[in-house]
């Protein structure tokens, strides 16, 4: 079965990012397919590579990144939500005339249409948020 997962909260502030990550792992472990994971609202903060939690804490962004690499996942950050919150890839930072980018490997920035397409293409859409 094909899943689309929506993540609406950033890591650390709300458990939903952890829940979504564990759910995604369980979906894959059971042999299902993840069509797309879409990050919206503060969920876009799951895609920064500049988080430095204490050494004994989890690094959620890196866990997403590694999961994406291992399973060739499509992790999409909403561009409108990302621009508001300062999550930038190289092209977008350049386009906006900014001096830095911060997206972590395995994520890409795209439009909200990707969420709707995810809802259409997947057999199940599951939302995690606050």
């Amino acid at each position: 079965m094909k899943f689309t997962i929506m993540v609406n909260e950033g890591p650390y502030q709300h458990q939903s990012a952890d829940s979504a990550l564990q759910f995604a792992r369980a979906v894959l472990a059971q042999g299902h397919e993840i069509f797309r994971i879409f990050f919206y609202h503060d969920g876009v903060n799951n895609g920064t590579r500049l988080s430095v939690p204490p050494a004994d804490d989890r690094l959620i962004q890196k866990e997403w990144s590694e999961l994406a690499k291992e399973h060739d996942l499509d992790l999409v950050i909403c561009i409108a939500a990302a621009q508001r919150r300062g999550i930038m890839d190289e092209d977008e930072a350049k386009r906006q005339g900014l001096d830095a980018n911060n997206i972590i490997e395995g994520f890409r920035i795209s439009g909200l249409g990707q969420l709707i397409e995810g809802g259409i293409e997947a057999d199940r859409t599951v939302v995690f948020g606050d």
């Binding site: 919206y40 609202h41 409108a80 939500a81 508001r84 439009g111 909200l112 249409g113 969420l115 709707i116 397409e117 259409i120």
Partner: peptide
């Protein structure tokens, strides 16, 4: 919170996809 505003943005896009 931003949920209402950003929800509207999704609604408008879904209309463009003729859902």
């Amino acid at each position: 919170t931003a949920y209402a505003l950003e929800s509207l943005e999704v609604v408008l896009i879904s209309a463009a996809f003729e859902q």
